[in-house]
């Protein structure tokens, strides 16, 4: 299975995720310019982090109008896997492939720091190898990452088991002070009802080599390794 890393104007974690896929996980992956992307060649796609179109208007909205998104929708309907990381998550939300919205952080500024997220479900193709309630170390780096949804939407997410990651404290508990951006229910990552589209704010590619982690671990690989199959 070949994975496409889609490069939008302003993407800036494209080379990072490509490095991890190719050099750390040794999976087949290719960087594809958004205008050149055709879904048929790929088994999975990653929308990388960054600031597509400068985050102008709303993070992700202008990229959501790229022709690449039509091809992504095609892949999704065929049941292929799509992962949006940070800005990629924002693009998926703005493309209505994932529900809700990502607003400006509670603190009103960009936040870059390592956080802990808890795996809420193992009933997705993305987390099927990770035990439920496992706590992962990953960094966040975003200005617009506060997940919000209306009460019904939120209820639906929980009922359908679509919440995949939540921010937690070192004891693995959801708490006010471990929620870095004010996300509702400390949501850090969700999937679609069909469970083949994942969006998350933390950066697994930045947590894939022990040398880069303050904890000398590589928790991001636990997630990304699903692209090996």
């Amino acid at each position: 299975m070949k994975t496409a890393v889609i490069q939008f104007p302003g993407s800036n974690c494209d080379l990072d995720i490509l490095h991890v896929l190719k050099n750390v996980l040794h999976v087949e992956a290719e960087l594809v310019w958004h205008r050149d992307f055709k879904d048929s060649e790929f088994g999975a796609a990653i929308l990388p982090g960054g600031f597509s179109y400068g985050d102008y208007l709303r993070a992700g909205i202008i990229a959501a109008h790229s022709p690449a998104i039509e091809h992504i929708k095609e892949m999704v309907s065929e049941g292929k896997l799509v992962i949006g990381i940070c800005n990629g998550f924002q693009i998926l939300v703005e493309s209505e492939l994932l529900p809700g919205a990502l607003l400006m952080n509670q603190s009103t500024c960009f936040i870059c720091k390592w956080v802990k997220v808890r795996v809420e479900t193992d009933e997705t193709p993305f987390t099927r190898h990770i035990k439920r309630r496992t706590v992962l170390n990953m960094p966040i780096a975003h200005a617009e990452g506060r997940y919000v949804n209306d009460p019904e939407g939120l209820k639906e997410l929980h009922e359908n088991d679509q919440v995949i990651f939540r921010y937690v404290n070192p004891r693995g508990e959801v708490s006010e002070d471990s929620n870095p951006n004010g996300s509702m229910d400390s949501i850090a990552g969700i999937c679609n009802p069909e469970r083949n589209v994942l969006g998350l704010m933390p950066h697994p590619e930045r947590a894939s080599e022990p040398v880069l982690s303050p904890f000398s671990d590589s928790d991001g690989l636990k997630l990304l390794s699903i692209l090996k199959s």
Partner: peptide, 13 residues
Amino acid sequence: PEGETIAKELIER
């Protein structure tokens, strides 16, 4: 830059 990008990338396109 914000207005210019919206005009060019979203509307003109």
